[in-house]
Nucleic acid binder design. Structure first.
Lengths: 132, 132
DNA sequence: AGCGACATTTACGTAAAAGTCAATGCGTAC
DNA sequence: GTACGCATTGACTTTTACGTAAATGTCGCT
């Protein structure tokens, strides 16, 4: 079943879908994050690559570095078997969780402030531009 | 009342409080984000600077660039008076809001996945390390 | 006066994440 | 068969956000 009838994606298809450049996707390949197949020199992306790209971009939006994203992907590919490694990983997960929760709080605070500013704008607009 | 009896903060006090380097605070000054006073060549920070630094660091955690942060600070300092400017600003606020909401969703998805991974770790640990 | 601790300025360095450019290949439509 | 468009590779460049080093200044203490 593996690699059966999956659709192939060309690099430009994916750049259009995700709004990134070809350079970016090649960069991610160089960094070992994705592994498109080749026919000749042309890359052919499987749906698994496509899915990976989605995750990479999400990580990027959150602010993860390439190194961190690579690490996360590694965890999915080969979850650590040894107990010490597992504990270490959970410790790091805990740290990341704390960081993300902080970040979420930051975002929420900022969203609130933006609402305030927006409201102020509206009243200001109402004041000035009654006849606009 | 202005500049009355406010406390002064030295640069190192603030670096300790916020866990950033002196270089960082001087950099923010160079970038025009904060304006500590001087006695001789030494910087003295007011509580307004301290508050600004808090906001800057929050923006940084969210992923805003220095330019964006400067822009936000500008808005607080001198809200635009002209109607066109106001509209433009609201448009940009809208864009930012969309971006932040997306980012928040990204974070929430990632937090969920982290929970799953953590759970998997726990069961795995239970399997292996019954006697650990 | 001299020491140590902390500050400052200037200037160059750096890592991450691409952007850009030039040369080249490959398929196919005309 | 050649021109065109899309791909590729490799090298070089850019931007952001500071780090780091070197040379000095300043303040308080003893």
């Amino acid at each position: 079943m593996r690699h059966g009838l999956d659709k192939y994606y060309t690099i430009t298809e994916l750049t259009r879908e995700f709004g990134v450049s070809t350079r970016t996707l090649r960069f991610y390949e160089d960094e070992g994050l994705i592994h498109p197949e080749r026919r000749g020199r042309t890359r052919f992306f499987r749906s698994t690559d496509r899915h990976l790209i989605k995750e990479i971009l999400r990580g990027r939006r959150i602010g993860f570095s390439i190194a961190e994203i690579r690490e996360i992907i590694q965890i999915y590919k080969e979850p650590p078997g040894e107990a010490g490694q597992l504990r270490l990983m959970m410790k790091r997960l805990e740290d990341k969780r704390t960081e993300l929760i902080q970040k979420r709080r930051d975002i929420e605070e900022t969203l609130e402030e933006m609402s305030n500013v927006e409201e102020a704008c509206l009243t200001r607009l109402a004041e000035i531009g009654v006849g606009t």
